[in-house]
Amino acid sequence: MGVGPLHIIGNVLASDIRMATPILIAALGLLLVNEAGLLHIGVEGTMLIATLAAVAGSYYTGSVWGGLLCAIIAAGLMGLLFAFLTITLRANQTVVGVAINILGSGLSAAMNRVLFGVSTTIASIDTFKNLPIPGLSKIPVLGTAFFNQMPIVYIAFLLVPVISYFLFKTQPGLNLRAVGENPGAADTLGINVYRTRYIACVVGSMLMGVGGAFLSTGLLTFFSEEMVSGRGYIAIAAVIFGRYKPTGIMFASMIFMAGNVLANLLQVYGVGIPYYFLNMLPYILTVVALAMLGKSTMAPAAQGKPYRRG
């Protein structure tokens, strides 16, 4: 167990993967919403609600998994609200997304006061612990990086092939993509466009909730106001930069967060300046990608357009 360069690489990789996890899960959730043809800017707000719900759930049930369940339910309700406004009422998706962000920010802070009062002492709650995979976690470097993580990390990376398979190899996945590309055609083929969009929106939001829960009961062990701090926007960036493919999104999340990890590392060593620029990295990369890809971004053709029958 020397403090050699290999050891550092293993640790850096491990922390990159850990940091990328909330982004990855939220982005995969957003992917489902986008594939249904909905443009969802409100990832940040949805995650924020979930961070609080997870802490509260863990506090009251005494189990971090209870917290996760609460986070999933809370985020799902936000998804339902978004779906109702944009699908049933056909409201402007961008504006509703912004409202969800403001609501998430306000409601999480307010409910925090309601539940835990103004006290500054942090309630101690059950949180996620590392779950080393027997055997594999002993492999040098790779073991620390990949096989000594929290359960949610494994789930997040397992979701990549699962969602990939779902989208491209199953009937509901094909139907979902058809709804996002050409809802009119999907309708003539007997697919209930509204229902498909509702389900995708709620399930997608639930995944964003898992991402939020991991922030407050995994990466950290408490709730603080605005603690998502831009990760919702990074998730949006990851979906675009990953070209609407689960594996692409996985690499995008890891590249984005590598900048963050590097920034923290450099700050430790007193090299402060690149910190802010490395944090900018996800956004700059996405703008550059948008500039180079232009219209061939692979975004679903009907994204952002409300659908009405007849």
């Binding site: 443009l39 961008t94 675009i240 802010y276 956004y283 948008l290 952002g304």
Partner: peptide, 27 residues
């Protein structure tokens, strides 16, 4: 010139501006 969605680019530019200001007022 690139056909990039302004909804996304404005959101991204928000974050970039925010970090730029953070950098300047700290440095």
């Amino acid at each position: 010139f690139c056909g990039a969605s302004e909804i996304i680019t404005t959101v991204m530019l928000n974050m970039i501006a925010q970090f730029l200001i953070e950098y300047l007022i700290n440095g």
